[in-house]
Design a protein around this nucleic acid. Sequence first.
DNA 1: GCCTAAGCGAGACGGTACGTCTCGTCTTATC
DNA 2: GATAAGACGAGACGTACCGTCTCGCTTAGGC
Lengths: 189, 189, 189, 189
Amino acid sequence: MRPQSLRARESVLTATCALLEEGGLPAATVDAISARSGVSKATIYKHWPSRTAVAAEAFGIKMATAVPLPDTGTAVGDLTEQVRLVSAFYSSHAGSTFAQLLAACVTDPAGAPYFREFFLNGRRDAIGVLWRRALERGEVDDEVDVETAIDLLFGPLIFRLLSGHAPLGETEAGAIASAALTGLLRGRG
Amino acid sequence: MRPQSLRARESVLTATCALLEEGGLPAATVDAISARSGVSKATIYKHWPSRTAVAAEAFGIKMATAVPLPDTGTAVGDLTEQVRLVSAFYSSHAGSTFAQLLAACVTDPAGAPYFREFFLNGRRDAIGVLWRRALERGEVDDEVDVETAIDLLFGPLIFRLLSGHAPLGETEAGAIASAALTGLLRGRG
Amino acid sequence: MRPQSLRARESVLTATCALLEEGGLPAATVDAISARSGVSKATIYKHWPSRTAVAAEAFGIKMATAVPLPDTGTAVGDLTEQVRLVSAFYSSHAGSTFAQLLAACVTDPAGAPYFREFFLNGRRDAIGVLWRRALERGEVDDEVDVETAIDLLFGPLIFRLLSGHAPLGETEAGAIASAALTGLLRGRG
Amino acid sequence: MRPQSLRARESVLTATCALLEEGGLPAATVDAISARSGVSKATIYKHWPSRTAVAAEAFGIKMATAVPLPDTGTAVGDLTEQVRLVSAFYSSHAGSTFAQLLAACVTDPAGAPYFREFFLNGRRDAIGVLWRRALERGEVDDEVDVETAIDLLFGPLIFRLLSGHAPLGETEAGAIASAALTGLLRGRG
DNA sequence: GCCTAAGCGAGACGGTACGTCTCGTCTTATC
DNA sequence: GATAAGACGAGACGTACCGTCTCGCTTAGGC
C-alpha cells in the first residue's frame, strides 16, 4: 500500500541534528524529536528501533562530509595529521556528542549497529584509504591488520575522551600517534 | 558530632557489588541498593553524588584484588600477557559491567571521578609497575610517557568493547599488543 | 487525538475509595493508588493536580449517594434531623476521612477546589433543598442567606470534629441545631 | 543543667514564632527550628511530642495577648464585635497559620492537646468572659451551653477559613454573628 | 474517480528510576 | 550526664523519558 514517507525520515534526521547540536544526546529525546520534526513518536519507532539509532544516523550523516582526508605526501604525515584532526574534533562540541553516542550504544544494543553503520564505518573507510595508500608506498607494516591499525591509532583517544583521565590536546594526540607508529619497544624509532 | 557511619558505606558497597554481579549496572538502581543494603536513599546520596559513583567505587574495590600482575621475565612478555588478561576480563561478565560504567561516566560527570579514582587508577598503577620494570630492564622506549603507553595498550581494547565493531578474542588482543609494541611502521618488528 | 481514558479515571477513583475506606487519607498515597488501580503515577498527575484532589473527588462521589434527605414534615424537624445525621456521619470512620481531607486542603490549595466541587457542593445543594423547602413553608427567616444558614448549622460540628475540643455526640449535635435555630439571645425560644 | 532546659524551651519557642511569621507552619520544620534556635532536635523532642505541638505552643503564646476583649455595653454588641475581630484575624497572615495548625492537629493527634491548651483555651476563656457578662445582663439564653455558644459563633468562620467555599469579610462575619444571635427560625428577630 | 487499507499526527498511557524532602530516632563528641 | 550537631531509616513526593497503544485524519494505489 502506501509507502513509508521519505519526508518523515528526513524531518526526523534534520530535527535530531539540530537537537544534537543544541544540547548533545541528552537533548535528543524522542519527544523532543517528535515535537520538532512534526513526526509522531509511533512513526519514529517504525523507522528506527530506538532513540540511539536515530541519533546515531543523524550524527553520522552530518559528520560524513566534515573531516577531509589529509595528503601530506607520507604515510607518517598523513596518519599523524589524521590523529591530530580527530583529536581536535573530539575536543569540540561534536566530540562530546560522539562520546555520548558511543556510551549510549553500550546500553542500547539496538542502536549500536546504526552507530557503526552511519558513523564508525565512514570514519574507518576514510582511514582505510590512508592505510592502503601507506601500504602501497611501503611505509607501514603489511602484517598489521587495518582494523588493528585503526584501533591502535584512535582507541587511545577515545578512551581518554570517555573517561577523562588524561588531557587530550594536540601534544597528547601527537605523542599517541608517534608511539603508535614507532611502537613502545626500545630502539625502534 | 556523629561521624558518617562506616557501616552504611560498607553495606552499600557490598550490596552494590552483589547487584552488579547479578545484573550489571542496570540492576544497581539506587532503590535496589537501598533495599538490599538497608541504607536509605537519602543516606546514599549523602555519601555519593550519584548512582554511578556508588557503582564505580564498588566495582573498583572488587576488581582491585582480582587481576594479578604477571611476571614472565621480559617486558614484552609481561605487557603482552597483561593485555591478554585484560582482554579476557573484558570478555567476561565483569567486562560488560566495566563498559556500562565507563559509558555511564560520560552521562554522569559527577560519577567519573569515582570511576577514575577507584577503578582506573588502580589499573594504571598496576600497569605502571610493569612499565617501570620494563624501563629498568631497558626493554621499552624511555621517551614514551607511561600514560601514553597504557592508553596505547588498552585504549584499543576498550574501544572495541564499547562499540563492538570488531571481535575481541585472544587473537585480536595479541595482535593489538604486538602492534602497540613494535609500531605500525615497516621494518620495526 | 486519543482522548483521556475514562477507564483510567474510574480505576483511580475506585481504588482511591477503597484505600480511603481501609486507612483514611494517609493510606491513599499516590503510589498506593497507582499500584491498586493499575494506572501509572504520571497519568494520575495528568488527570489531577495532586493526591488531595483525587481523594476529594473519590470521597465526594462515594458520599454523594450515601446521606439521604430527611422529610419529617417541618423545617425544624428536617434541619435538626440533618444535623443529627451529619454529626453521626462525622463520628464514623468516614468522618475522620472527611476531617483529613478538609485539613489537607489547607496545605494543598490545588486540591481545595476539588473538595468543594465534589464534596461540599453536593452537601450544600442537598441542604439548600431543605432550606428552600423551609422557606416556602415560611418556617425560616428569609433574611438569612442559605450559605450563612448552612455554615451556622454545620460549621460548629466541623470545628469540633477537627480540634476535638468538645465531644460530638447526638446530644451535642441536638444542642447545636437547637441553638442555631432559635438563636443565642434570650426569650427567642 | 536545669536552667539550660528553660533556655532551650524559650529559644525554641522564639525561633518557632519567627519561622511561623515568615512562612507559616510549613516553614516551621523541626530542622529549621533546631537550626535557628541552636537547640538540637533531640532536645526539642524531649520537650514536645511533635513539631505540631511546638508550633501550637509558640503560636498560642504569641496570640495570647493580641486580641483584646471588647466592651460595647451590650452582649449583642460585644459578641458581634468579637466575631468581627476574629474574622479580621482569620483574614490575616496569622489566620492562615491558625488554619494550618488546626489542620495539622487532625493528622497529628499528639499535637492537638497543645493546640487546645495554648491556643483554643485562651480564646475560649476570653469569649467565656463575654458570655458570662451577657448572661448576667440577662441578654442571652441561659439554656445554651457556653461551649455551644462559642462553637456556634466561631465554627462557621473557621469552616469558611479552612475550605474557602465562601468569602469571609466583615459583611459575612456580621451576617453570621447576627444569624447566630437571632436564630434561623422566622419571627425571632 | 472511487475506495480502502495503511501511513501518519497527536498524545495518552504503563512502567520504572530518579533525586528530594521531612519526619522522628539514634549516635557521637563536647562541655 | 545532658546537649549540639547531625547522621540515619523510612517512605512519599512529583518528574522525566522510554517505548507502546489508541484514536481519527490523510493519502496513496488498485479497481
